[in-house]
Design a protein around this nucleic acid. Structure first.
Lengths: 227, 227
DNA sequence: CGGACCATTGAACTATCTCAACTTCAGTGG
DNA sequence: CCACTGAAGTTGAGATAGTTCAATGGTCCG
C-alpha cells in the first residue's frame, strides 16, 4: 500500500512540529507528502498502523463496515486534521480520500520516540485523542436519539464551522457519504436538505447541490436541539 | 456535591496506584471511598471535573440529555472501571449510580502532578482515553447501522464479557437504561430479549428478568454481525 | 454526444415507536 | 404474614419516521 510513497529527500519542514505535536525542541522528520485520487484507500481497518497522517488539502472519510456492506462513517477529516493516530497496533477504521487529497505522512515510531523525551508530545497526543473522543460522544447522541432533520441540521452546522469559506459551505462529500455519517439513507438526507431549502433556511450556489449557503443559522441551531 | 465525602484519615491504599495509572514510584494519595444510593447523581454534565472515579462496587451510567428529555447513555461503568477522567475543565456526561455504588475518588489535580513527573502516567491516561474512544467508535456503528436485534445481541455479548459470573449475567440496569444505551425504546428491547428467549438462545434465572443465562453464544455472535 | 454518476422526488413498505393493558416483583406498613 | 403500592417488564395493536424501490433530470468527463 505504501509502495508508492515518494523516496525523494524528505524536506525538513515535514516534521513533527508541522503536526503541531512536539514542543519544537526535538523536531522529528516526517516522510513527506502523498496524494490520493478520489475514492482511493489510504489505509484499511485492521492494517498495521505504521503512519500518522495530516490532511494538507482535500477530505478523508473514516469508516467501519458490517459484513453485509452497511457502512458507518465515524468522521470526516478536513484541511489540517490529523488522522490515523492509533494507540494500539492497528487501524480501527478504513480511511479513503473523498476527493483528490494530499496528506503529510509521518512514522508512528518517530512519534513514540519523541514522546519519550518530551512531555509536551504526550500532552498533545492525549489532547488529540480527547478531541476525537468528544466528537464520537456527541455523535453517539446524534445517532442514537436525533431525528433525521436534526441530524442534517447538526451536520450542516458542523461543516459550516469546519469548511465554510466566504459564507459558502463547499461539501466535498456525496449525499451517500453524509447519509452514512448520519446513520440515514441518502434519500432521507436529500429530503431533509430540500425541506431546509423550501423553508428558506439554506440556498444552493453554483450548478451543483454541494455548495450550500446557510441563510438562517439560528433556525438551524433550533432544529438541532441543544442538550 | 462533595460535602458528604468522608473526612477520615485516607488510607494509603487509596492511591493513584490503585487506579493503576502510576508506575508505583510516586503513588498519589486519593480522597477515599464514597457510596451513592441507587439513582443518585455523581456529577453533572458541564460541571467542573475536579475528581476522577473508579467503581469499587456497583454500576454507573454516563449519559447526555437533549432539552426535551431524550437520553443517550454513552457507557456503563462496572467494577474496576475508571470514569469521570476529563482532559478539559468540565465533565461531558452526567454520571449516575444505577444501583447502590461505591467508588474510589481521587483529585484530578493529583493526577496532573503525577503525570508531569512520570511518563508512565501519561501512557496510562492515553491508554484509558483510547479505550473509551474505541468503545465509542464501535458504539457509533451499532447506533448508526445495526438493527434492534443486532443491538441487543451486541449488548448481551458485551455484558457477558464484562459482568457474567458463573455463566449468569446479572444486569444491574433496567430495560429503559438498556434502551437508552442502544438507541431504542424499552419495548423494543423487551421484544428482542423475548425473541432471543423464544429462540432458545438465552434463559432467565431467579425471579427477575435481569438475570440472564446465554445458552447459545454462537447464535448471539451471528446475530451481532461482525464487521 | 454518450455514459456514469449524483441528486431529487414519489409511492409503497416496514422496523421501530407509541399508546395502552396486563402481569410480576420489591418494598412498606399494618 | 399479608395487603397495598409503585416500579419494572411484557405483550398487543395501531401509528409513523425513515427505508426501499423506482423514475426522472442534471452534471461531469471522456
Amino acid at each position: 500500500m505504501f509502495t508508492r510513497i515518494t523516496t525523494r529527500q524528505t524536506p525538513r519542514s515535514d516534521s513533527l512540529r508541522d503536526f503541531g505535536l512536539s514542543s519544537g525542541s526535538t523536531p522529528i522528520i516526517g516522510l513527506g507528502e502523498f496524494t490520493y485520487r478520489k475514492g482511493r484507500e489510504i489505509y484499511g481497518e485492521k492494517e498495521a498502523a505504521e503512519y500518522v497522517y495530516q490532511v494538507k488539502r482535500g477530505a478523508v472519510r473514516s469508516y467501519k463496515l458490517l459484513s453485509d456492506g452497511r457502512r458507518q462513517i465515524g468522521a470526516f477529516h478536513l484541511d489540517g486534521d490529523i488522522f490515523g493516530l492509533e494507540n494500539g497496533e492497528t487501524h480501527r477504521f478504513t480511511a479513503e480520500a473523498v476527493v483528490k487529497t494530499t496528506v503529510r505522512v509521518m512514522r508512528r515510531a518517530s512519534l513514540e520516540v519523541a514522546a519519550d523525551s518530551d512531555v509536551v508530545v504526550w500532552r498533545n497526543l492525549l489532547g488529540l485523542t480527547t478531541d476525537n473522543l468528544q466528537h464520537a460522544e456527541n455523535h453517539m447522541l446524534l445517532l442514537g436519539r436525533k431525528t433525521s432533520l436534526e441530524r442534517v441540521a447538526a451536520f450542516l452546522l458542523e461543516m459550516d464551522g469546519r469548511l465554510s469559506a466566504a459564507g459558502v459551505i463547499s461539501l466535498p462529500m456525496s449525499r451517500r457519504d453524509i447519509a452514512d455519517y448520519l446513520g440515514l439513507t441518502l434519500e432521507t438526507v436529500s429530503r431533509a436538505v430540500s425541506q431546509l431549502h423550501k423553508a428558506g433556511i439554506l440556498d444552493f450556489m453554483g450548478n451543483t447541490q454541494r455548495e450550500i449557503v446557510i441563510l438562517d443559522r439560528q433556525s438551524l441551531a433550533l432544529l438541532d436541539l441543544q442538550n
